[in-house]
C-alpha cells in the first residue's frame, strides 16, 4: 500500500523494517514504523501538502494543527487520559510521531458486532458496556479541560489489554468488544472548560454515531448515562446538550 504515495522525507532513510501505510485519513496518512529501536512500533502521522489549498493557507493550517495536536496530546498524558504518547514532531515537515496503539477503531468493532442484525440490539450487554466505556473516556477527557472537536467512532480505538494481562491476540479479535478506549486524532482538539464546547463535542458524536451506526442509535443513551457520572459539571453539560440539539439547523419545529 505504501507504494501508492511517495513516502514523506522523514521515512525515506533506509530502515530495517519497512514503513507501512495504514490508512489515508481525511487529514493525512498514517504510517506504521519504528521509533529509536526496531522493536518499538510507532505511528507517523503525516499531513502532506494539499495541492488544492492555497500554499500560504496550507502551511498555516498544517503548522497550527501539528503543534496544537502535540500540545493537547502531551497535556492529556500529563493528566492521565489514555491517548497516544508523543515521540517527536516537525511542524514544518508536517509530521507527528506517536505511540502505536494496537487494536481497531471502535467503528469497526461496533459494525462487526452489529452484523446484519435488525433486532436485539437494545439488549446487547456487550455493546452497551462498550457505549458506557466510551462515555466514561469522553467524560474523563472533558474533566481535564480538553474538547476533541471531531468525535466519531473512527476517532476512538478499542485497544485490547497487553499480552501479559490477558491471553489473546495482540491486535484484538474480530467482534471482540473487550479492551480499553483510546481517543485518537486530536487534530481539531482544543483546551476548553466551557459547558457549551463540551456539549457541542457530545452533539458531534451523537450525530456522527446516528449516521454511522443508525441501527445502534437506540443504545447511544448509554454513552450519555456513563458520561453523567464522570465529573462534577457533567449533568450541566447534558442539560446544555438538549439546547444544542434544538439549535441544529432546520430542525423540524413540531412539538
Amino acid at each position: 500500500m505504501s507504494g501508492d504515495f511517495p513516502l514523506p522525507p522523514i521515512l525515506q532513510t533506509p530502515c530495517s523494517s519497512e514503513p507501512v501505510l495504514i490508512t489515508q485519513g481525511a487529514e493525512g496518512r498514517l504510517y506504521k514504523t519504528t521509533y529509536l529501536t526496531p522493536n518499538l512500533p510507532c505511528a507517523l502521522k503525516y499531513r502532506p501538502p494539499k495541492p488544492w489549498r492555497h500554499p500560504t493557507l496550507d502551511a498555516r493550517l498544517t503548522k497550527h494543527r501539528i503543534l496544537s495536536e502535540a500540545r493537547i496530546l502531551s497535556r492529556c498524558r500529563r493528566e492521565g487520559i489514555r491517548v497516544p504518547g508523543v515521540y517527536a514532531s516537525d511542524e514544518v515537515g508536517g509530521w507527528l510521531m506517536l505511540e502505536w496503539v494496537p487494536g481497531a477503531p471502535v467503528r469497526v468493532r461496533i459494525n462487526e458486532a452489529l452484523g446484519d442484525r435488525q433486532s436485539g440490539i437494545e439488549e446487547d450487554e456487550g455493546l452497551k458496556d462498550l457505549m458506557r466505556r466510551i462515555g466514561k473516556a469522553i467524560g474523563d477527557m472533558h474533566a481535564v479541560g480538553v474538547v476533541h472537536g471531531d468525535l466519531t467512532t473512527s476517532n476512538m480505538m478499542l485497544s485490547p489489554k497487553p499480552l501479559n494481562e490477558v491471553d489473546g491476540e495482540p491486535e484484538g479479535q474480530k467482534g471482540c468488544l473487550e479492551g480499553e478506549i483510546v481517543i485518537i486524532d486530536l487534530g481539531l482538539a482544543s483546551g476548553s472548560l466551557l459547558i457549551e464546547d463540551r456539549a457541542v463535542d457530545l452533539y458531534v458524536l451523537e450525530r456522527a454515531f446516528g449516521s454511522t451506526h443508525p441501527r445502534a442509535e437506540c443504545i447511544f443513551d448509554q454513552v450519555l448515562e456513563a458520561y453523567n457520572g464522570t465529573f462534577k459539571q457533567a449533568p450541566a453539560v447534558l442539560k446544555k446538550l438538549e439546547d444544542v440539539r434544538m439549535r441544529g439547523r432546520k430542525r423540524s419545529m413540531i412539538g
Binding site: G25, A26, E27, D150, A208
Partner: peptide, 10 residues
C-alpha cells in the same frame, strides 16, 4: 473540501 474529505474517509 476539507469536510468533504473527512466524510469520505469516514
Amino acid at each position: 473540501v476539507e469536510i468533504t474529505e473527512r466524510a469520505m474517509a469516514h
